[in-house]
């Protein structure tokens, strides 16, 4: 993997991001009502025909859609996402101010998902049919079936209200992060545990494992060195798609725990019909998602020599 390949990947992102931007721009047309009328109402003015005409012209709404799109794209590329209808502040500033909180939550959830699924998945496969295997199955079924909003409230009730070991909600040190991260990470852990189990089982059935065993390697070495690395790699590619799930789930978790992230901002904006903020949120999350996926792809190429050869 050379700089050249990284640059090539980045270049391939251009058409994807163009389509993403077009869809995000188009989202505004889903909203019911005339944006000019809404802008006037938001400013506290009564929308009469003349004022609407004036504002349409001022906002450039009387231009062809394509012109509007490219104007919007040009501004967006310069980091100008417009101003919030409700607060009047720059959307980009509001989003970036809350972005670290969401990333901290998503990364902590990812860490928890990894830490849970890794040992559970591998043990379940190695000791197939054992108590461990059944326990991991029960846990992953429960994790896949429990809605995040229910789990979050249960955790608050148990650990914050009854046991009083962790704060109920809000933002602060790592103690505040524990319950939201578990709430968000458990669903992902459930999926990964099953995937890892299946992956390890598949590798254990391969010929090279039989060879490793036949030449007298200890079971610990067979599993530790020959199996795990091969089984984990395919699961790693799922981190990218899983991250999109975390960004979506973060909205609900942030709402329950009053976590000051972009998800909470977006939900508030939706109910205030603050469309520029909603649009900016969609754009930012998609950008993060696309970049994380690219990073995972590149990391995968670096770690797995087979893919590296195929890519070159």
């Amino acid at each position: 993997m050379t700089i050249y390949h990284v640059l090539k990947r980045l270049f391939h992102l251009v058409p994807v991001l163009l389509v993403v931007s077009a869809v995000t721009f188009g989202l505004i047309y889903l909203a019911p009502g005339d944006p000019a009328v809404m802008a006037l109402r938001a400013a506290g003015m009564e929308p009469d025909a003349e004022a609407v005409e004036q504002i349409r012209h001022d906002l450039g709404l009387d231009d062809p859609v394509l012109v509007q799109y490219f104007r919007w794209l040009w501004r967006t590329l310069h980091g100008d996402l417009g101003r919030s209808i409700r607060t009047g502040k720059e959307v980009s500033g509001e989003l970036l101010g809350r972005f670290p909180a969401t990333m901290a939550l998503a990364l902590a959830a990812l860490a928890i998902a990894m830490l849970l699924s890794f040992p559970l998945g591998v043990l379940a496969a190695v000791r197939k049919g054992s108590v461990m295997d059944h326990a991991s199955r029960v846990m992953s079924l429960a994790g896949a079936s429990i809605p995040g909003f229910f789990l979050g409230i249960l955790l608050i009730q148990i650990f914050a209200v009854k046991l009083k070991v962790l704060p109920v909600m809000g933002y602060g040190g790592w103690r505040h992060l524990v319950l939201p991260a578990i709430t968000l990470g458990l669903g992902m852990a459930a999926v990964y545990t099953r995937m890892l189990r299946a992956g390890v089982l598949e590798i254990l059935g391969e010929d090279f494992i039989r060879v490793a065993r036949a030449k007298g390697l200890s079971e610990a070495r067979v599993v530790g060195k020959h199996t795990i690395r091969n089984a984990i790699l395919p699961t790693m590619t799922l981190v990218g798609t899983g991250f999109g799930y975390l960004l979506g789930g973060a909205v609900i978790v942030e709402t329950i725990f009053v976590w000051p992230g972009v998800g909470k901002l977006a939900v508030d904006a939706i109910f205030n019909r603050d469309y520029p903020v909603v649009q900016g949120y969609a754009l930012l999350m998609t950008l993060v998602f696309v970049l994380v996926n690219m990073a995972v792809d590149i990391a995968y190429t670096v770690v797995d020599p087979r893919v590296r050869v195929a890519a070159e």
């Binding site: 979506g248 909205v251 939900v267 939706i270 909603v278 998609t286």
Partner: peptide, 11 residues
């Protein structure tokens, strides 16, 4: 290219 749940929420 979109995170599905985010896009669903926004739509």
């Amino acid at each position: 290219a979109f995170p599905a749940l985010v896009l669903a929420l926004v739509i």
